[in-house]
Design a protein around this nucleic acid. Structure first.
Length: 634
RNA sequence: GCCGAUGUAGCUCAAAGGUAGAGCAAUUGAUUUGUAAUCAAUAGGUUGGGGGUUCAAUUCCCUUCAUCGGCUCCA
């Protein structure tokens, strides 16, 4: 009997008899064997003590791969459940997966876990890790598994088991006195988990449904070494520093005032300047891309929202109506009915399409109090909204243009990494399945053509159409949706939108809702976090600070300010009677991109000393040289 | 909305059942300074709001609002 095992480097190992993966790893190098977390056999994840009995392709995963981390953290979740069960036997276990940064486990327990208890659990985990319990897999039938968990009184496991097909093989993993229903794979034994930190607790609904019981969730993370854990904790500290809420306060960009209301943003002059620059750029780019800008009211009669359907499907997010002349008006949660009204104000020929109507439209939506989050999630925000009304034939081209446009614009702001999602038809959708398929295909084909990586969210579309979403991550790695491109098979019909075709008869156009930045507020927040507040020159509210060393250079300084302002630079001068170090520190803390430091020497030689934020002194030079240097640096 | 934590001066934080303190910022004065904090003085708070217990509450209790971390939902 000969077994061939091929490895990722192309080499092939031959064995006369079935062989364990751990033995193969050891053969390659004991260090690799030690670092290996699990194996991937012909694409299927298996334990390190899995026996290979036929020709296969083997990949070994260490903590360096995403899969390796996933398995490692999942195993740590089991370890945590073991510790919790030992300390609190009355607690029922539910599920405990790995997540992007660590793991969690949900427990059913009446009282919450306190910070002190977290420390106890963490310490017990360390003891259990030191004991080196082996994770051992056992395969069994469904009735056998049911019996085990019934005896243990683990109701949630029984509920999960009940949903697994009777014919499937069930597996359990046991380490020490703890047994859990689990597909696996797992690390070899608990001693591989060297550094553990339980981070936070929270409530979480069983199966994520708020109708279900709320469970107690514990989040944690683990690493093969203390060094890596400390690095991670340092990362969390650093991330706090680039939180847009902190930067917004430090740089005096915006505030949210209790007396005005939660989720309602006040833009201070510095933040307003940045927003103005973003919006100006946005308008220019849209005009360049053939969009028409429009403005629409903030409220509309109830009839409008009846026609659009919002009162039916979106009322939960809408504020109560106000009475004007005994008529009910609603503050707008979306801009689309208004844009449609503009379209419908005239008859349109197919020759006018595609029509692209764009607006920085401020909308108000009721968000549940627990979800508000700085500028990321607010109750009043401005969407960079546009509606593209086109013929079915124009759809493919429009979608492709849109994706390119969106990515280009995001890149202009410095973003490089995106998460792209395609969401398809959900249950209870409106419109013809045929239209849905066409539109979904159009979205898919465009992304394929552009060679974009994307994930499909089956059934995740809105009820009125499929969509593409582009998300950007914040300082802590949480993803926020910015760009959204959504088909709408609902409103064109409801508002009876038409265009006259070449056949001289009316046709229903396709309509696409789209926002590139998403909302200006959220985009601004991600932008701030992405740059850690160090905005590129073109977006900095103050670009150059002139810093005279003594009052004697004040006149020369004011002259420089005038010259810089004439060139279009946003410039200020620090006239305070402070020492140079103080003024420089202040400008650095305000993250102003450039400083002109001027003393007696500079004035007599008609020069300036240029200093760049975070980079330091660039030396003395003429005004023109300084401008040249600024242009080159950015 | 749900689970948990938090709320003290503009900011960052301290104190404590006997009536609140520091640093920075601010204001004023002095200093005229060479690349990340000059010195001094002054001013600043019904300790988020309301209610209760108490001789006395900022501290203990209740309630409400907001914030933070999650869940759910979404731009």
């Amino acid at each position: 009997m000969a077994i061939k095992v091929s490895l990722p480097d192309g080499s092939v190992k031959n064995y006369d008899a079935p062989v364990k993966i751990i033995d193969i790893a050891n053969e390659i190098s004991p260090r690799l064997a030690d670092a290996s977390i699990c194996g991937e056999l012909d694409g299927k994840l298996v334990d390190m003590d899995h026996v290979i009995d036929h020709d296969s392709a083997l990949v070994l995963h260490t903590f360096k791969t995403d899969t390796g981390k996933d398995v490692y953290w999942h195993s740590t979740a089991h370890l945590m459940a073991q510790a919790v069960k030992q300390l609190y036997p009355e607690v029922k276990v539910t599920i405990g997966p790995a997540i992007e940064q660590g793991f969690y486990y949900d427990f059913d327990r009446d009282q919450p876990f306190t910070d002190e208890e977290l420390v106890l659990i963490e310490n017990r985990m360390k003891e259990l890790s030191a004991a080196g319990h082996k994770y051992s897999r056992r395969e069994l039938t469904k009735p056998e598994a049911m019996e085990i968990f019934r005896q243990m009184g683990e109701d949630y496991k029984l509920e999960i088991l009940a949903e697994i097909p009777d014919t499937d093989t069930i597996s359990t993993y046991t380490q020490g006195d703890f047994i859990d229903l689990c597909r696996g794979p797992h690390i070899g034994d608990t001693s591989k988990i060297k550094a553990i930190k339980l981070l936070k607790t929270s409530g979480a609904y069983w199966r994520g449904d708020e109708k279900n019981k709320m469970l107690r969730r514990i989040y944690g993370i683990s690493f093969p070494s203390n060094k890596e854990l400390n690095e991670y904790l340092l990362f969390l500290e650093e991330a706090k520093k680039r939180d847009h809420r902190k930067l917004g306060k430090d740089l005096d960009l915006f505030s949210i005032n209790d007396d005005i209301g939660p989720g309602l943003v006040l833009w201070h002059p510095n933040g307003a300047m940045i927003r103005h620059l973003i919006e100006s750029y946005w308008k220019e780019e849209h005009l360049r891309k053939g969009y028409k800008l429009v403005y629409t009211p903030h409220v509309g009669r109830s009839k409008l929202w009846e026609t659009s359907g919002h009162l039916g499907f979106y009322s939960e997010n809408m504020y109560a109506p106000m009475q004007i002349d005994e008529q009910e008006y609603y503050i707008k949660p979306m801009n689309c009915p208004f844009h449609i009204a503009i379209y419908n104000a005239n008859h349109h020929s197919y020759r006018e399409l595609p029509m692209r109507l764009g607006e920085l439209g401020t909308v108000y939506r009721y968000e549940r109090s627990g979800v508000l989050h700085g500028l990321m999630r607010v109750r009043g925000f401005t969407q960079d909204d546009a509606h593209i009304i086109c013929t079915p034939e124009q759809m493919d081209e429009e979608v492709e243009k849109l994706i390119v446009f969106s990515l280009d614009m995001l890149k202009q702001f410095g973003f490089k990494d995106f998460l792209i999602y395609l969401s398809t038809r959900p249950e209870g959708s409106v419109g013809e399945v045929e239209d849905w398929d066409k539109a979904t295909n159009s979205l898919r084909m465009s992304m394929e053509k552009l060679g974009l990586d994307y994930q499909v969210d089956e059934g995740g579309g809105a009820f009125y159409g499929p969509k593409i979403d582009i998300k950007i991550k914040d300082a802590l790695g949480r993803a926020w949706q910015c760009t959204t491109i959504q088909f709408d098979f609902n409103e064109p019909t409801r508002f009876d939108m038409n265009y006259i075709g070449p056949d001289n008869s009316p046709h229903r156009p396709y309509m696409i809702h789209r926002a590139v930045l998403g909302s200006v507020e959220r985009f601004f927040a991600t932008l701030l976090e992405y740059h850690a507040g160090n905005l590129p020159l073109w977006l900095a509210p103050v670009q150059i600070m002139v810093i005279p060393i003594t009052d004697n250079q004040m006149e020369y300084g004011k002259l420089l300010v005038e010259k810089l302002q004439l060139l279009g630079y946003r410039t200020e001068i620090d006239t305070r009677g402070e020492k140079i170090g103080y003024k420089i520190r202040d400008a650095e803390l305000k993250k102003i991109p450039f400083m002109f430091v001027i003393g007696k020497n500079e004035e007599t030689e008609a020069k300036v000393t240029l200093r760049q934020h975070t980079k330091g002194d660039l030396g003395a030079m003429s005004f023109d040289e300084a401008i040249k240097a600024i242009r080159e640096q950015q």
